[in-house]
Amino acid sequence: MRGLLIGMCLVVMAGCGKQEEPPVKLYEHEREQLKKAKEVEGTLLQADQAQRKAMEEQDGNTP
Rank of each mutant, 00 (worst) to 15 (best):
L44P: 05
E28C: 07
L26F: 08
D48K: 13
M8C: 11
A47M: 12
V12D: 01
L10P: 01
L10C: 11
A50C: 05
E39H: 11
T62R: 03
G15W: 01
K25T: 12
G3L: 12
Q58A: 14
P23K: 02
C16S: 11
Q51W: 03
G7P: 02
D48C: 12
R31W: 05
H29I: 11
Q51I: 05
P22V: 06
V24Q: 12
A54V: 02
Q51S: 13
Q51M: 09
E56I: 08
K38Y: 10
N61D: 03
K36T: 03
L44D: 09
E39D: 15
R2L: 15
L10Y: 02
L45I: 11
V40G: 06
M13D: 01
E57A: 06
G15M: 04
K35R: 08
E56S: 09
G15S: 08
E41T: 12
E57N: 03
L45M: 15
E21R: 09
M8S: 12
C16A: 07
E41I: 15
G42S: 11
L10S: 06
K18T: 06
N61R: 04
Q46V: 12
D48A: 15
L34W: 05
E32G: 13
A14W: 00
C16M: 04
E20Y: 13
T43G: 15
G17Y: 02
N61S: 09
K38I: 13
V11P: 00
V24L: 13
G17E: 01
L45A: 13
E30V: 15
L45W: 07
N61V: 06
A14K: 01
N61L: 14
G15I: 00
P23E: 02
P63I: 04
T43S: 15
C16H: 00
K53P: 00
T43Q: 15
C9A: 14
R2Q: 09
P23T: 00
V40Q: 14
K25P: 01
G17F: 01
L45S: 11
P22C: 05
E32I: 08
M13S: 10
G15T: 01
R31Y: 13
A37T: 07
L10R: 03
G15V: 00
H29D: 13
E41R: 13
K36G: 04
E41F: 11
L34T: 02
A37K: 08
K18G: 06
T62E: 12
V24M: 07
Q19F: 07
Q51K: 10
A50M: 10
C9I: 09
E20P: 03
E20D: 10
H29F: 14
A14I: 00
I6C: 08
Q58D: 09
D59F: 09
V40P: 01
Y27S: 13
E21S: 12
M8R: 13
